[in-house]
Design a protein around this nucleic acid. Structure first.
Lengths: 69, 69
DNA sequence: ACTCGATGTGAAGGAGGCTTTACATGGAAA
DNA sequence: TTTCCATGTAAAGCCTCCTTCACATCGAGT
């Protein structure tokens, strides 16, 4: 599932480590989500969206709505 | 994580089996989510929200926003 | 050349999501 | 009572999420 995490993080000037600490997960988890190696759990998706003040749908792209470029 | 799945399902007169088929998961998965035994994956949460025409936030209650009754 | 911060990734292990099979209970209907 | 549907739950197995530890690469700065 695509997501805008890397962009949102960069807009704030945060490193993956910074973001990981705010989310209370490991840096590797942030990296894995950004690079698309796996999707976050639903509770973590909530924490991410709330941290950025967005709806989950504005951070993560529904598989059924991805454009084929 | 609390959710409104049972109510939304009942509003439509669907059995757990009906809902499971529409979501393409097992009836046991629907039951487990309704009874709070576990949270769905993020992709499944998207399918659930889209099926009901709602935002994820309108189906699942963020852990940080649950009222203590 | 050296260091240092940031990022990517691998391996191993624990917890959780999801499956199939299977069984139990309860309510409605006849 | 018997039947039938809906629901709850257990067990075993597989895959995913998330962890820690570890190592590699790259760019900036000195």
């Amino acid at each position: 599932m695509n997501n805008r995490l890397r962009v949102l993080r960069a807009e704030r000037g945060w490193s993956q480590q910074d973001l990981a600490e705010r989310l209370e997960v490991s840096r590797q988890s942030v990296n894995a989500i950004e690079t698309g190696r796996y999707d976050p759990s639903l509770p973590l998706a909530f924490r991410i969206a709330e941290l950025f003040g967005l709806a989950i749908e504005d951070v993560f792209v529904s598989p059924s709505k991805e454009s084929a470029s």
